[in-house]
Design a protein around this nucleic acid. Sequence first.
DNA 1: ACTTTTACTGATAACGTTAACATTTACAAA
DNA 2: TTTGTAAATGTTAACGTTATCAGTAAAAGT
Lengths: 316, 316
Amino acid sequence: MATIKDIAKMTGCSVMTVSRALNNPEIVKKETLDKIRAAVDATGYVQNRVARSLIKGCTFNICVYIPSTLDATESFVAQTISSIGERLGNLGYSLSLRRKLVIDDNFDGIIAAGLNIEDEDEFEKASAVKPAVLYGNSERFTNWVDVNNYRGIYKMTEYIIKKGHTKIAYIGMDYHAHYVAQRKQGFLDAITSYGLEVSPQYIVTADNTEQAGFDACGRLLAQASPTAIVCATDLIAVGCIHALQRRDIKVPLQMAVSGFDGFGIENTVFPKLTTIKQPLYDVGVRLADAVVDSINGKPQKHGIYIEPEIKPGESV
Amino acid sequence: MATIKDIAKMTGCSVMTVSRALNNPEIVKKETLDKIRAAVDATGYVQNRVARSLIKGCTFNICVYIPSTLDATESFVAQTISSIGERLGNLGYSLSLRRKLVIDDNFDGIIAAGLNIEDEDEFEKASAVKPAVLYGNSERFTNWVDVNNYRGIYKMTEYIIKKGHTKIAYIGMDYHAHYVAQRKQGFLDAITSYGLEVSPQYIVTADNTEQAGFDACGRLLAQASPTAIVCATDLIAVGCIHALQRRDIKVPLQMAVSGFDGFGIENTVFPKLTTIKQPLYDVGVRLADAVVDSINGKPQKHGIYIEPEIKPGESV
DNA sequence: ACTTTTACTGATAACGTTAACATTTACAAA
DNA sequence: TTTGTAAATGTTAACGTTATCAGTAAAAGT
């Protein structure tokens, strides 16, 4: 494989001139530049990134840190990793997927996802040493990217209200996670800002599984009679739809049902689910951009919320 | 950040001895080794992979090549990328995601997925220069890893036959792709090897969408009366189940339905789909292992088929 | 006591590139 | 011509590591 020395020898100029021709073509005489470019084309020479890295003191490699508590093969995580990878690839960066955060000289920046509390301390230390970006909003940091869960549910609730519904229920999770609280708050705020009332029997708790959605829907119908159900996730919504079908309640005619996530299942349920699609591709792109910008001395001044869009189906 | 020189200075030995302590600890005197290890621990020194790469002539980076015809954010592709990444990370390799195949010194090996015919020529050239592994079986190469689609459908058909079904239909795709033909053949061979008959009206063609499955199921029921339907994909199976529900045909009581893929939707349909789960995680691991083995001079002698397993649901 | 072997350590150069400084060339102004 | 200046190019050293060869000290064999 040709090196810069070969090109220098072929063109009769010094390696330094070749280096300049590659990195600062505007300061090389056109004639020389043409000769060099011809030689580069003829040999198929490509800069050796390793040697370049050594002198430049950067690796063009990003550490993608995902604690082992998170399953990297889960569709949600995988799609994010994949879009980070695609963007980094376009920016000329490679990535190392790590399940432990060790700081060394082998990467230029960090993208971390799915951290829990104890991981955040580690992350803080790491981000003092290297550019680091977090997937998921946090009050401790400014360098994060997240989906705006609050706005997502708010928009969906608004959308349902504008369809004429006034008796709207919410089925969602109740464990300690930012996004869980944000989705619920989005619902509550939309309801009250449109002058509707929030009665406690219209709010039901369910884990993020189809079965839990199914059960929760049963409990909801026993204590209230809504015409629409806003679900915190698609899985819950799917369970919900099954529970309604079991009771011969037609969706969307007798009951509107909405989801949140849009990882694919919205298309496979009948009727097709009206949902809020998580913009995972955009998240990956922003994370990659953020870390590379940060490496290039343009750190993010504040967190970035990406607003998800409603993906209309037939269930509302 | 500490370098090998710092460790040498701290311990009073030469950088070469430190290097040996890190790479061939068994040839360094125990006493010296302990001193060096203590210094390494104290400083948090980690070998600089870039410098190591330069002298070793390898990069510890793998090119993951996915032609731009394939959507890298699609769940299927994303999960494979993600498991490749995880395995490579464990093996100490990083990866560069590329949408064009350019051969240079910046990676040690190639994993390619989703190639079409013209890409295969490129791949052949590349694999002459660098260790390269293909995702997807091919007669032109020996260095590939694939899911055994034939065995998957064969096992599922067998499973259904053993449940006592004799009138079994097949709904699948008909376009030119290895896996399409393999799935169909798996069905046909299972049927005939159990002495059952294959009548053409029991074989229906459908694209890989829910709607196509829905329509195909209608056509099937108009011309045949099976008690079980083997579908080439989960999407088709889901469409099929909806078509049956529409006609008040109970699944699995009056009709067994099976799918293939297991990307998640098998859980979100009611009843839960009995399907063949694509072992994407294993595929990623084998691809990563194969390329690293190949780099280390142990190239794969023949293609590897990974046998998928039946994931029982409630639809059979 | 001498050689031979073994175990361990060190000095130097190299990997392919770029930074920093030095030099040459070209050409305009004096 | 000479000088000054800008444009273009060259030289050397360095980045952090390991390969190669060379050495030393201790142990073992004669």
